[in-house]
């Protein structure tokens, strides 16, 4: 299989445009799902080995 980087990037841009055009209520539901996943990943990351790095990360988004 040949990887056509230009086409991949174009498809990504098209997908982002599609997402941007969704009704806002749907986008907010997606945000909610994203937040739940982010929190789950963050909780899983807070183990002894990674705690220090997590503590030092930037403040929440603005």
């Amino acid at each position: 299989m040949k990887l056509d980087r230009t086409r991949v990037l174009e498809r990504k841009r098209a997908f982002r445009r599609q997402l941007a055009a969704l009704p806002i209520a749907e986008k907010l539901r997606m945000l909610d799902a994203l937040r739940v996943r982010t929190l789950a990943i963050r909780r899983a990351s807070i183990s002894g080995a990674t705690k220090k790095a997590v503590d030092q990360e930037a403040p929440p988004d603005r």
């Binding site: 982002r16 997402l19 941007a20 806002i24 986008k27 907010l28 997606m30 945000l31 994203l34 937040r35 982010t38 929190l39 929440p60 988004d61 603005r62």
Partner: peptide, 20 residues
């Protein structure tokens, strides 16, 4: 509303943990 949630009104969903 501003920040990432505000941006989501104009863009694809912008991941964030809170609403400003």
């Amino acid at each position: 509303i501003g920040g990432a949630v505000g941006a989501t009104f104009y863009l694809e969903p912008v991941a964030t943990l809170d609403v400003d």
